[in-house]
Write a protein that binds this DNA or RNA. Structure first.
Length: 583
RNA sequence: GGGCGUGUGGCCUAGUGGACAGGGCGGGAGGUUCCUAACCUCCCGAUCGCGGGUUCGAACCCCGCCACGCCCGCCA
């Protein structure tokens, strides 16, 4: 309802400033500090003071004077506080909020008619997903949920790098080494099984006897050439490895609640000839240069000193060359393309963007969301090839185990019956996985983070369980009440804490709109925290089911709790954090 | 050396031009015969990396510097 309130405030301010012959280009609408009793405020008087030839507070008073709250449905009163013009809500504002949030899908915005493909994760199918990469699926999936909720038509893609040198090495290693020479897999999953060959192969290439390494390089080269030439048998050999590893990785991502609409393989753009076509067109560009037997693009006009090599001297293409074909396909199929990608790919992505621009594409349709790496304490990075780091499976196991301990520790203090084993397991899973996702999604992606068990799995305040607990509380109340009233009178809700809660609920659709527009899922996490705090304030001061509560008040408070439940459930959904009905 | 990013109490973090910088962790003091205490209340604690500039007003914009991260491969 805040969105509608804002529209009224805009209209009111525009009219008032216009009537006073003051500029209306910057209305200065903002959200006031917590202790100010207004939904929105305007700081326009600061800037209008000079034009008005009067001190700012006097201008604010004039503006407020000009606005008749009675002309508006949602604005209850307009008051000044110093230079600020504050807009207070009407009874109808609370009424309308309660009514809107009665719906299960409260906060969902109207379809925009715009299609967008979000590519995220896209980790090379070389082995188990580790924590260093875990930011990508978590941020990417939250972004997808957010955009979809905000009315976009979203497709989720995982781009599979199945054609690079890495995969050629992997395929060669898989076909060359014998399982009996490898260590036992860390888990009974195909990605853990196969990564042993990949690691063994890389080690061999680095430290093996020179002559044998040379022979291996020939074999690897043959695989790459086979892919480039569209050789079916080579494709199948590589796919045998790729598909197995991918199955394992997909299973891990599924534990996190992350799923995709499509796994797009880069070989697809080689088989049908799109990549060759891209090479042709790049070669025809004025910026194309042929140096040291390789075709390159001179991007110095864009401030990129490093030449972008798009065709190796051996005639094979590079990752980014294939990615150009991939993105041309995205441009054909979707209105917008967003890629969630590690900051270490910034230069490559810039080269991709510029190349696409030179090929005549409108690259404003291409967006990227960079996140920085997760490091290990002590400064080490995580590498699949070297086998360093913490596997995502390991993190999730540990998270659930710690959550289980927490649930069991709280069993003794429970005032309401024991939990069954299934319930303990369900809560542990929801809380453990939720804590991991929340911890990652709540932070700005550009900030570097260092992985620490205790911090990642802290179930105290400002974590998923804190918010999940609020959801469980709403469910607890509603379950006991048995029925939620259909039509209620919001006028019965007079306490400040009830109004605070309604105002916070009213903000939700605006939070969705702004977070989606800015591509900032973490803003939703910030909101859930504020929401939980506000709900707990209401919970403390406004009993719902107490015998002393009169019927009409009880009904109104029940409706408010139902509205709160829909809001927090949807907010958690956007973050990919499950909303337990009890915990 | 160049490019991109980050710098907010002891630690983590929100806040991209406006009302005393908001939370959490930690430390201290309290709260439950009452809808789930994974909760709440109060207290302790900040030269918003440093220096300049723009502005009525700067954590936020501009310039310089410092620190840290990432990139600068015919890898992905």
């Amino acid at each position: 309802m805040l969105l509608q309130f804002r529209e009224e405030v805009e209209a009111a301010l525009t009219d008032a400033l216009g009537a006073l012959e003051l500029p209306t280009d910057d209305l200065g609408i903002e959200r006031p500090p917590e202790d100010v009793d207004a939904v929105l405020a305007s700081s326009a008087a600061f800037r209008a003071a000079e034009a008005a030839g009067a001190p700012p507070p006097a201008v604010a008073a004039d503006v407020a004077e000009r606005i008749d709250a009675g002309d508006y449905r949602l604005i209850g009163a307009v008051v000044t506080q110093g230079t600020y013009v504050n807009f207070l809500p009407s009874d109808a504002y609370y009424e309308a909020t309660l009514e809107a949030a009665h719906e299960d899908d409260y906060g969902r915005l109207d379809p925009t008619g715009e299609s967008v493909v979000v590519e995220h994760t896209s980790a090379n199918p070389t082995g188990p997903v580790h924590v260093g990469r875990a930011r990508n699926p978590i941020i990417g999936d939250a972004l997808c949920r957010l955009l979809e909720f905000a009315g976009y038509d979203v497709d989720r893609h995982y781009y599979v790098n199945d054609a690079g040198r890495q995969m050629a090495v992997f395929t060669w290693a898989y076909e060359t080494f014998d399982e009996s020479d490898l260590p036992d897999p860390e888990r009974d999953k195909p990605d853990y099984d196969l990564v042993r060959y990949y690691r063994e192969g890389n080690e061999f290439l680095e430290e093996g006897p020179e002559a044998e390494v040379e022979a291996a390089e020939d074999a690897i080269q043959a695989i790459m050439q086979g892919l480039e030439d569209g050789d079916e048998e080579t494709f199948e050999r590589v796919q045998r490895v790729v598909d197995q590893v991918l199955d394992g990785m997909r299973a891990t991502l599924q534990r996190l609640g992350v799923e995709f609409d499509e796994f797009v393989k880069e070989t697809r753009f080689m088989r049908a000839g799109e990549t060759d076509d891209v090479v042709e067109r790049l070669r025809d560009l004025d910026e194309a240069v042929y140096e040291e037997d390789a075709w390159q693009l001179d991007l110095s006009a864009f401030g990129i000193d490093k030449n972008f090599v798009f065709l190796r001297s051996d005639g094979t293409t590079l990752y980014t060359t294939r990615d150009i074909a991939h993105h041309e396909w995205k441009f054909d199929e979707y209105d917008r393309a967003i890629t969630v990608i590690g900051e270490d790919h910034q230069l490559t992505f810039e080269q991709l963007r510029r190349a696409l621009e030179l090929l005549g594409h409108d690259t404003d349709r291409l967006e990227q969301l960079f996140y920085s790496w997760v490091n290990l304490p002590g400064g080490g990075g995580m590498s699949t090839r070297e086998g360093t780091g913490v596997d995502l499976d390991e993190l999730l196991d540990e998270a659930v185990a710690r959550a289980r301990e927490e649930v069991e520790a709280r069993m003794d203090e429970r005032t309401r019956g024991d939990l069954t084993d299934e319930e303990v397991e369900r809560i542990a899973r929801q809380v453990g996985i939720g804590a991991v996702r929340y911890d990652v999604v709540a932070k700005q992606p550009t900030k570097a983070i260092t992985f620490e068990w205790d911090r990642a799995l802290d179930f105290e305040a400002q974590s998923a369980p804190y918010v999940q607990y609020v959801h469980a509380r709403t469910c607890g109340i509603l379950e006991r009440a048995e029925s939620v009233p259909q039509a209620v009178d919001a006028d019965a809700l007079t306490e400040p804490k009830a109004h605070d809660l309604l105002e916070t609920i009213a903000r939700f659709p605006a939070v969705v709109e702004e977070a989606a527009a800015a591509r900032e899922p973490h803003a939703v996490a910030t909101y859930t925290r504020e929401f939980a705090e506000t709900f707990n304030g209401f919970y403390r001061e406004c009993p719902v089911l107490d015998e002393d509560v009169p019927d009409d008040l009880r009904e109104a408070r029940l409706a408010l709790v139902a509205a709160a439940r829909h809001t927090v459930a949807n907010a958690l959904y956007l973050l990919g954090v499950e909303a337990p009905e009890s915990m």
